[in-house]
Simulated assay, not measured.
Amino acid sequence: MTIVKRYTLTCATANEGALRAALDRLARAVGVIEGCERVEIERHETRCEMLFAERWRDEQAMRASAGAIDKAALQDVLRLADDIGSDIYTVLC
C-alpha cells in the first residue's frame, strides 16, 4: 500500500531561497532511497510555506528510510525552517 509522508514547512522570507535549495538537495537524497517512488516540493502561492511530499512503496520502506537519509541535507532544512508539521497518508486510488 503506497504511503505519502507530507511535511509543511514555513520560513522567514529572507530564508526562502536557501530553504528551497536545501529541500532540492534533500529531495535528491531521499529520491534514491530504496522504496521511494517520488518526491515533490510545492510552494504556497501567497505564504512563505512549502510542502515536501515523499511517496513510499509501503510503510516498511518509509520506516526503513530513516536510517538511510542524508543527515547533512536534513540538518540544512531543519536549520532554515521556522516550523515543520508532518502528516502521513495512505493512497486510496
Rank of each mutant, 00 (worst) to 15 (best):
M1P: 06
M1V: 09
T2Q: 11
T2H: 05
V4Q: 13
K5F: 09
R6N: 15
R6Q: 15
Y7S: 10
L9I: 14
L9W: 08
T10I: 04
T13H: 14
A14R: 10
N15C: 02
E16P: 00
G17E: 15
A18C: 01
R20Y: 11
A21T: 14
A22K: 04
A22T: 04
L23P: 00
L23V: 08
D24C: 07
R25W: 04
A27M: 06
R28C: 11
A29D: 10
G31N: 11
G31T: 03
V32C: 14
V32P: 04
V32E: 15
I33T: 04
I33L: 05
I33G: 06
E34Y: 10
E34N: 13
E34C: 03
G35C: 06
G35E: 11
R38P: 01
V39G: 07
V39P: 04
V39R: 09
I41C: 10
E42L: 15
E42D: 11
H44L: 02
R47Q: 09
M50F: 15
M50R: 09
L51C: 03
A53T: 12
W56M: 01
R57N: 08
R57Y: 04
R57Q: 12
E59I: 08
Q60K: 13
A61T: 12
A61W: 03
M62F: 11
R63T: 14
R63G: 06
S65L: 04
A66S: 12
A66M: 12
G67D: 09
G67Q: 06
I69D: 07
I69R: 02
D70H: 01
A72L: 09
A72R: 07
A73H: 03
A73W: 03
L74D: 10
Q75M: 10
Q75G: 03
D76A: 07
D76H: 01
V77H: 00
R79T: 15
R79H: 08
D82V: 00
D83V: 03
G85V: 05
G85N: 13
G85R: 13
S86Y: 07
S86L: 11
S86H: 07
I88Q: 05
Y89S: 03
T90Q: 01
T90L: 02
V91D: 09
L92R: 08
L92Y: 09
C93R: 10
C93W: 08
